[in-house]
Design a binder for these strands. Structure first.
Length: 507
RNA sequence: GGCGAGAUAGCUCAGCUGGCUAGAGCAAUCGGUUCAUACCCGAUCGGUCGAGGGUUCGAAUCCCCCUCUCGCUACCA
């Protein structure tokens, strides 16, 4: 049996249409999933939507539709978006799925029977007109941050999860698994702000809204987001039934999440799993955000477009490449249309597209498209060949460290080197003298090999473009098993393939 | 307030277990080349490495202090 790799995105909240931030997380997850598949892993890549809660209930009411109708439309749209972005998810979970709901109910009951969920009273500061609870720190001048009116201290009956019970275990777990949270700064935040000061029990049911999964043994309660949403990572595998899928894929290898929900995934989720006696995920990566004009992406600011506009204008791989290349590990990165254009022109058009184009055209022009194995070595070849031969290991390492942007840098360093190699070897000069014909063939062969290796790796990041390159080289795409097995003979045909990318003129 | 991260070329960042003249990409200027998508290659321009103090033969890199920016500070997915 192959090694397995279970990777997840968060399940997104479909209270509004998805934006480039959702795409960002999902594209990263997709690239990692594709990379692991190429490396021979049996990958399970899951994404989905978290569809319950007050906010959606309210939005649906405003629109005059049922909550289910409201989310159905957004989910259909999201699935279309993922398709356009070539997101290769294996499973799309919705918390409104029947099987998810019954499994959540079973989990809730299980924890209740065990004594880790108990009935208590939730005391909070409540704004009656807004029907919302607030914490001390959320208040603005002691008033409701939404409407500015007074809040009252109210109590409602609720079920609680004994989070406090797992404080010590969590601390120990962090100690023993220093790489559990990436980047490290996120771990410090969790330890210093929550775990060390002491964890409070967590309110896991609500009576203030109806749009959720009912508690089976107490129907006026609805199971709140923590247990409803976080458990998606195991209900999709059949849990609480111990299915073959569950045994195979759990624990997850990587939960990819935005920095705003690191807490839920590194405190609440592990504690729930401890309570269920299940192994914990191996890693949670809290990535940064795409920032627009220095601020976060926000519907109310109206500072973003439907991501499909970018895909339609510049191509899916321009968008994917930007998301994967522009933002450093764990930090925020700026997104703007002009930086997207610059990236696309500089890297995809000039370095990659032009290299493939000039190489193939020389193969056609000088050898009628038939470029066979190398015959005349020269010292100058060594540097390029070394870079190509070590590339796969370097990229492996970067992916392991989740430094996706640096992985792409490594690949493009090699592509740059190819362009330089052409200038250094001057094939157009070699072509003038019949005596240099075999040397010229070697030069082109080395270039074709370099391009093939890069394209093989690029399949994980910009799959559509990689496919185009394989078609241009007239070879089958392949995985990492035979990446360094030479093809020995390229039959490029006689027709120049279409450009991979057209330069974008900035308005 | 507490905890944490950061402040390095016009822009985005790397370097920071202290050590040759501080690096990359983009942008700008100049030159080369023509196989190629006005592309590619090379060179140049450009930084008192946030301020001040200290340790050291030597600090962007360690210590102290200050200024500024950002993140987190639990029931908002």
């Amino acid at each position: 049996m192959n090694k397995k790799y279970y990777i997840t995105t968060p399940i997104y909240y479909p209270s509004a249409e998805f934006h480039i931030g959702h795409c960002y997380t999902t594209i990263i997850a997709d690239a990692i999933a594709r990379y692991k598949r190429l490396a021979g892993y049996d990958v399970f890549f899951q994404t989905g939507t978290d569809e319950h809660g007050l906010k959606i209930e309210t939005k649906a009411k405003e629109k005059g539709v049922t909550p289910k109708e409201y989310v159905d439309e957004i989910i259909a749209n999201a699935k279309d978006l993922w398709q356009q972005l070539n997101i290769s998810y294996d499973y799309f979970i919705r918390t409104t799925d029947e099987h998810h709901m019954t499994r959540v109910q079973e989990i809730f009951k299980k924890l209740y029977d065990k004594g880790d969920i108990y009935k208590g009273e939730y005391k909070g500061l409540y704004c009656v007109p807004c029907e919302s609870f607030w914490t001390e720190s959320q208040l603005v001048d002691g008033k409701c941050p939404d409407c500015g009116r007074d809040v009252n201290l109210v109590a409602e009956e609720a079920y609680f999860f004994r989070l406090s019970k797992y404080q010590k275990q969590l601390e120990d777990f962090y100690e023993q698994n220093p790489d559990f949270i990436a980047p490290v700064s996120r771990k410090n935040e969790m330890l210093n702000n929550f775990i060390r000061p002491g964890l409070e029990d967590l309110c896991v049911s609500r009576t203030s809204f109806k749009w959720g999964i009912p508690v089976t043994f107490d129907e006026k309660h609805v199971i709140y987001v923590w247990i409803d949403a976080l458990t998606n990572y195991i209900t999709s595998l059949g849990y609480p039934d111990i299915t073959p899928e569950f045994e195979k894929y759990w624990p997850a290898d990587l939960h990819l999440v935005g920095k705003e929900i690191v807490r839920f995934h590194t405190i609440i989720w592990p504690a729930l799993l401890m309570a269920l006696d299940l192994p914990l995920p191996k890693k949670v990566f809290g990535h940064g955000w795409l920032i627009i004009d220095g601020g976060k992406i926000s519907k109310s600011l109206g500072n973003y477009k439907d991501p499909r506009e970018y895909i339609n204008a510049y191509g899916v791989d321009a968008v994917r490449y930007f998301a994967l290349r522009e933002v450093p590990f764990g930090s925020d990165g700026n997104f703007s249309e002009s930086s997207l254009i610059t990236r696309t022109n500089a890297d995809l058009c000039n370095i990659l597209g032009n290299l493939v184009s000039r190489t193939i055209q020389m193969g056609i022009k000088y050898f009628d498209g038939n470029v066979k194995n190398p015959k005349v070595y020269a010292d100058i070849d060594e540097d390029l060949k070394n870079s190509v031969n070590t590339l796969k290991d370097k990229v492996d390492q970067k992916i392991e460290e989740l430094k996706i942007n640096e992985a792409l840098e490594e690949i493009f360093d090699v592509l740059r080197k190819c362009n330089k190699y052409i200038d250094d070897t001057t094939p157009w000069v070699l072509a003038k003298d019949e005596e240099n014909k075999t040397r010229l063939e070697t030069v082109l062969y080395n270039l074709l090999e370099a391009i093939r290796v890069c394209a093989t790796i690029l399949q994980a990041f910009i799959p559509e473009t990689a496919d185009k390159i394989f078609k241009g080289l007239k070879i089958d795409n392949n995985n990492f098993d035979n990446i360094y097995e030479s093809v020995f003979e390229y039959q490029l045909g006689s027709e120049k393939p279409a450009n991979l990318f057209e330069r974008i003129k900035e308005e």
